[in-house]
Design a protein around this nucleic acid. Structure first.
Lengths: 202, 202
DNA sequence: ATAAAGTTCAACCATATGGTTGAACTTTAT
DNA sequence: ATAAAGTTCAACCATATGGTTGAACTTTAT
């Protein structure tokens, strides 16, 4: 195994940690170097400059969020099953890295153009199958008529908001870390219920 | 009217705009001065330093989000009406300033301690009446058993997420600004329905 | 009218920060 | 064995940035 790859990867991992914790403007090249345990010049040797290093981190983060979601939306399972899978997909992501959603959303807002370019670069097409399923369920009377966009945003909102606003949840409800994770876990089962039948009694 | 107040207020408004658009680290004192149309020294004359200026902006922003929500939660109306009022409250807030939720959430994560202090400083108590209503509705069989925390987070998530992730929504669904605002408006009626009966047919 | 208090600004200052350079060292290819 | 290519680092550099200073100007109080 060459040292080359190890250094480059250590820089990348350190950059991920620092950028995700502090955002682009808050991150310091020196801090990334310290975190990686190498000299600051190495950052420039491997990634040329802060922007390019950041872009790598951002794009890698995006790839952890978007393609998986879209492949579920386009898969051949029932709408009910799809919602469960989306929730599970997000929860797997949270388990690996709780800061990722906040990071992506913040940086997306900070630079909309970059986000647009990214979406364009990987040919993500809006999932036609998902939209068709939602429309059919509505016209056959199984569901109320709801635009597929709203349906999807409802699921995503219920999953992501408590993670994006983790601090608000913990502070307002006085939850320590353990209680917070229990809270999240409870929602995993709750979200599909809310989507399909709200708070109606069983 | 004294010039004093005008300058101070212009600085504050400019600071609000710049901090909300770029965050603490991304904001530049010079940019705030330019935006306010005054000399940079004035910022320090009126607000001493960047931190203090920021804190004013942050606290003012928090006050636009928290107390109103809690007074609704504690008010003497039915649970159904409460949800409608919460949605309306958030939508009024959005109408005045769409960047506010993202700003508050981002800065809350950047500095949890400051947020905790703020919450402690204004004696916000968890709304007992709201929790009681949710529990009673469940025990009387009108609703499924659901923890009040989850009930509340569901409503807040469905309201705020599409605003916090505005860019994602607009880009993925190819919505121009007008279409985005229509999308938001549709949700105003949709959210209470989802909360109480999900996507069940009417 | 006059002094004190308050306000504004151009010119500075100290430091943090992203980035560069060149020499030393290590690995790889022949 | 040796030269070329690749890697690492201490020392620098240029600039951006938050903050300060002191003089000039304006308003307020007596």
């Amino acid at each position: 195994m060459s040292l080359e790859k190890e250094t480059e990867e250590m820089i990348f991992i350190a950059a991920q940690r620092v950028f995700q914790a502090k955002g682009f403007e808050g991150a310091r090249m020196q801090e990334i170097a310290d975190e990686a345990g190498i000299n600051k010049s190495m950052l420039h040797y491997y990634y040329r400059n802060k922007d390019k290093l950041f872009l790598e981190v951002f794009q890698t983060s995006m790839k952890k969020i978007m393609p998986g979601l879209f492949s579920i939306l386009n898969s051949e399972v029932t709408l009910e099953e799809k919602v469960v899978q989306i929730v599970e997909f997000y929860y797997e992501m949270f388990k690996k890295n709780l800061l990722l959603p906040t990071f992506v959303i913040y940086e997306m807002n900070r630079n909309p153009e970059r986000f647009k370019e990214f979406i364009a670069s990987m040919d993500i097409q809006l999932p036609g199958l998902f939209a068709k399923q939602v429309k059919e369920a509505a016209s056959s009377g199984k569901m109320m008529p709801i635009a597929p966009h709203h349906f999807l945003i409802n699921v995503v909102s219920l999953c992501m908001m408590p993670v994006v606003a983790r601090n608000m949840v913990q502070t307002l409800f006085s939850l320590d870390d353990e209680a917070y994770f229990t809270f999240l876990e409870e929602r995993k089962l709750l979200i599909p219920k809310i989507i399909f039948s709200g708070v109606q009694p069983l």
